[in-house]
């Protein structure tokens, strides 16, 4: 039997040296991970509450029209609710897709462009949504 040694012998770093390359030294991935759990938990209440009010409560979806939305958004409470919902859901979804792209995109180029597409569209939705919530004007007469 001959022992076959392929390549160089493994190099083991000295115990207290930092690992070369790779690590970016930030806690970003950890905070992203925690954010996913926290936002998910909040969204359960926000979204289920939203669906319940919009679709089931007196008259349900049939009663929704411009006046209804204008009436709701007269209250800062519902504006805050909707704003929280928008931001949490959008960031939660964006981070989820970012992670999926990291998992499945095989080439660096694909990875980069998919993420650019993701961040751009996500930014536009956030911008537009926030703009509407803050600048909504119930007076459409002129």
């Amino acid at each position: 039997m001959t022992a076959v040694v392929t390549g160089d012998l493994p190099v083991i770093e000295a115990p207290r040296s930092r690992r070369s390359g790779g690590g970016n030294g930030t806690n970003f991935e950890m905070y992203a991970w925690i954010f996913m759990r926290m936002s998910g938990l909040l969204l359960v209440f926000l979204v289920l509450g939203h669906l319940f009010i919009m679709l089931l409560l007196d008259g349900g979806v049939q009663r929704i029209n411009f006046g209804f939305v204008a009436g709701r958004w007269a209250s800062p409470f519902w504006r805050t609710w909707d704003l929280a919902q928008l931001w949490l859901a959008q960031l939660h979804g964006t981070n989820g897709l970012r992670v999926i792209i990291n998992d499945y995109a095989e080439r660096d180029g694909t990875r980069f462009w998919l993420k650019m597409l993701l961040y751009t569209s996500s930014f536009l939705v956030l911008l537009l949504g926030t703009l509407v919530i803050f600048t909504f004007d119930p007076d459409i007469t002129g």
Binding site: R16, R19, G22, G23, N24, G25, N27, E29, M30, A32, W33, V99, N102, D103
Partner: peptide
Amino acid sequence: ERLEILNDKEGVWR
């Protein structure tokens, strides 16, 4: 040290 290594982009958070 080991926790720092696993805190990496390719570490436990994946």
